[in-house]
């Protein structure tokens, strides 16, 4: 680990001030950043500990939920309102990492965790994300775990978060504070596709701090879930994951749907095409499969991950069928 200075922020304004120093990074639970620093993939010259900032989980007058960025993953997954009104979020968090890591990891840190592409971690490999312009050893390498949607010749890495997939499906909004003031943006606009600059992973301004995540009132989210397909039953990253909420009308047609995919792209992938294909259609497996086909039509698998295309289609279909189940 290269040397760095450490400071604890007492409030968001102080954090942003310290975060503006060259080479500064915000530190949450450290479960990803400390590991990357040990591998010298990350080499900040100062760390600003933001775990002492807002961690409250508050119900808002409009029916939504505001979650402080320092809230631990365990606290969010176990929160009564999250469990009953946004079960996909509880399930997504509980599907990720281990009990120990969920106790440490924060909301904000989870949003900003970096890819688990093995070439990104390996200092001996070429990686455009780690060293812009260096090339990508994953494109022609072992790319079983890599992206099938939205990738570029420069980068085929995937975003590792489970939580973000649920947040993408549930229309979450991210609250930010920077030197120029506060703003908010939809979670689906926080992360970027790689394009020619895979080192630029988010749309955050320099020193901009995530202060909270807002879940809008979304009654249909009470019927939502998350399914993660992985190489072992627990404590492994997703090959493919699906977060979904489904509202079926009395006549058996899809009144509304929210759908997002994990493990398939550089960012949590909101499946807008599948949603559009489903609205107004009968809530049947045939409709679900057709919507999945529409979403994956542009999939561009690599040498070792073509299985993800069919896996994503089947998982989307199975999750939507599960959410329809009790009504049938």
């Amino acid at each position: 680990m290269t040397p760095f200075s450490f400071a604890r922020a007492d409030d968001a304004a102080a954090a942003v001030r310290m975060g503006g120093a060259p080479g500064a990074k915000y530190l949450g639970g450290g479960t990803n950043l400390v590991d990357l620093m040990r591998e010298t993939v990350e080499q900040p010259t100062s760390l600003v500990d933001v775990t002492g900032l807002g961690d409250a989980i508050e119900e808002r007058a409009d029916g939504g939920l505001l979650i402080g960025a320092a809230a631990r993953n365990t606290a969010v997954a176990g929160h009564r309102t999250v469990r009953t009104r946004y079960p996909a979020l509880s399930r997504a968090i509980l599907a990720g990492a281990s009990g120990q890591i969920r106790n440490m990891a924060t909301m904000g840190g989870n949003l900003l965790q970096r890819t688990r592409c093995t070439y990104f971690y390996d200092a001996a490999a070429r990686c455009n994300k780690r060293v812009p312009g260096a090339g990508c050893d994953a494109v022609e390498g072992f790319n079983r775990i890599h992206a099938i949607l939205g990738a570029s010749p420069a980068c085929v890495a995937t975003h590792p978060s489970d939580m973000c997939v649920a947040l993408a499906a549930l229309d979450a909004v991210v609250h930010l504070q920077g030197g120029a003031g506060t703003r908010s943006l939809p979670l689906v606009d926080l992360h970027r596709l790689p394009g020619g600059r895979p080192d630029m992973e988010t749309t955050l301004e320099p020193s901009e701090l995530i202060t909270a995540v807002e879940l809008p009132a979304l009654p249909m989210a009470a019927r939502s879930t998350y399914r993660k397909v992985r190489d072992r039953a627990s404590y492994a990253f997703a090959l493919v994951s699906v977060a979904a909420a489904l509202d079926v009308a009395a006549d058996g047609t899809v009144r509304d749907v929210r759908l997002a995919l994990g493990g398939v792209a550089h960012k949590p992938w909101r499946a807008a095409m599948a949603e559009q294909a489903l609205r107004g259609q009968p809530a049947t497996e045939a409709s679900f499969r057709a919507a999945a086909e529409a979403e994956l039509a542009d999939a561009a698998p690599l040498a070792h991950n073509a299985f993800k295309v069919e896996l994503a289609k089947r998982t989307i279909t199975a999750v939507l069928a599960e959410l329809t189940g009790d009504r049938a």
Binding site: G29, G30, T74, Q100, N103, M104
Partner: peptide, 9 residues
């Protein structure tokens, strides 16, 4: 609360 001391500064 259980945590991983290796990832904790």
């Amino acid at each position: 609360e259980r945590i991983l001391s290796c990832l904790a500064l």
